[in-house]
Simulated assay, not measured.
Amino acid sequence: MPKAQETVLEIDLGALAHNYRTIRAKIPKDVKFMAVIKAYAYGNDSVSVAQKLQELGADYFAVAYIQEGVRLREAGISIPIMIFHPQKENFGQLIDHRLEPSLYSEKLLKEFTAFAEEKKQKDYPVHVKFNTGMNRLGFTEKEVESIFGIFSKTSAIKLQSAFSHLAASEDWKERDFTLGQISNFRKIAARLLEEFNYEPLLHICNTSAIFNYPEAAFSMVRSGIGLYGFGNDKEIDKHLKPVGTLKTLISQIQQLEPGDTVGYNRTYKAERPSKIATLPLGYADGIHRKYGNDKIGVFVNEQYAPIVGNVCMDIIMIDVTDIDCKEGDEVVIFGGPQHATKFAEAGDTISYELITGVSQRVTRKIISE
């Protein structure tokens, strides 16, 4: 593989395909697969990821906002796309691009129903979200009857799916709570089947639940972080391959004498003759200040080099005193020899925040399967 000529995020579609097939193998063949590709496919590239997953046979996509769905439609993505958080102001675009809203409150349900009626829609597919314990968004079990009342009075919309979101499916200490959420959703599903004369799709499993609670697959599962190579569990991670590798190159190497300092606020002081390499990325690219001052390092020619001094907006400094390297050599920030989870933990955060935070000014480079 050619070496980086600039700061790039390499996106390995072969790894994506491996992860999709690995996760798909955990669910029954008749269960549908919803791939979550919000936030630029978790910081990667939503169009390339969606094109590959559509080719692989994903049944549904999910994104957070309507504009994310529009981008996919304009790129030629044809399979159904659910919008987790639709906004009333964009309902026109939603219908124009045949995107499917998640409706989580009576207010939003009534607003979209009225809009669909005004636009003379027939059986427009919508999804209803239920709150089973996450306590962010969603209807309660008590509201099933009122939901049905709205659906029964219109032909403009049709319930395509009902779903909920698990709060701690990766945490075995919260197993009782998770089982309680699944039980609550089963009750809601039973109520829905009593009220409606057809069975909508039902889904509650996220990536961790697909592995830990396969009995809760219902008729569809949703996977986000797992597709990108992270399972929230070291045992699951063994079966997945990280999709993104963040790389850059050495801009310059400074020779320091004992007592010389590096960077803003002089937080690093050389205790011996040292070589300090500068890298062309910083907190504006998603590598925050919290990673500076020897909290974590990067890899130069497969050797570990700690980050020294404060991370700057566009520059990071690393100690390469004991590494044979030169200006222009490739540097791996995460991916390859260093799992993004380990890098994230050094900054007291999670892989989700790290990978979705890679700035859009960083060039995305697609590596085909």
Rank of each mutant, 00 (worst) to 15 (best):
Q252R: 15
A25Q: 11
G244A: 15
S164N: 09
Y304E: 07
M313G: 11
S48N: 08
M34T: 06
K119L: 02
Y228V: 04
E199R: 15
R272F: 05
T267A: 01
G43E: 07
E369K: 09
E6M: 13
Y42W: 10
V320I: 14
L202Q: 14
F130H: 11
I367A: 00
G76Q: 12
H203P: 05
F151T: 04
E330N: 03
E143V: 10
D171W: 00
P125L: 08
A50P: 08
E235I: 06
I236N: 05
A156Q: 01
Y60G: 01
R21N: 11
E111H: 10
L9Y: 09
Q303E: 14
F130E: 09
G14H: 06
I296V: 14
R364S: 08
S169E: 12
T207W: 07
V70R: 07
E195H: 14
A4I: 03
R21V: 00
Y291H: 11
L108W: 00
K120A: 14
K119I: 03
I79D: 09
G263R: 10
E257I: 07
D171A: 02
K342W: 02
C205H: 09
E369A: 05
R361A: 12
Q181L: 03
I287P: 03
K88L: 05
K158H: 11
K247I: 04
R266M: 07
I287K: 04
S78W: 01
T248E: 01
P258M: 11
G43F: 06
E257D: 13
A277P: 04
G180N: 14
A277K: 05
P242R: 05
F112W: 09
T154P: 04
L103P: 12
E327W: 07
S274L: 08
N310A: 05
L179V: 01
L201V: 12
Q303Y: 03
D171R: 04
V8Q: 08
E345D: 12
S368Y: 14
Y213N: 12
R289W: 00
G335T: 05
M134S: 13
D96W: 03
F91P: 03
Q121K: 15
F84S: 06
D96L: 08
A58W: 03
G57W: 11
I27D: 10
L249N: 03
E141D: 09
C325R: 08
K26V: 00
S274T: 15
G92H: 14
S152V: 02
G263E: 11
G138F: 12
K142V: 04
G347H: 00
D319M: 04
F115V: 06
G14E: 13
V8T: 06
E302P: 01
L16A: 12
T278H: 13
A340Y: 10
R361W: 11
N212G: 12
G133Y: 08
V298A: 13
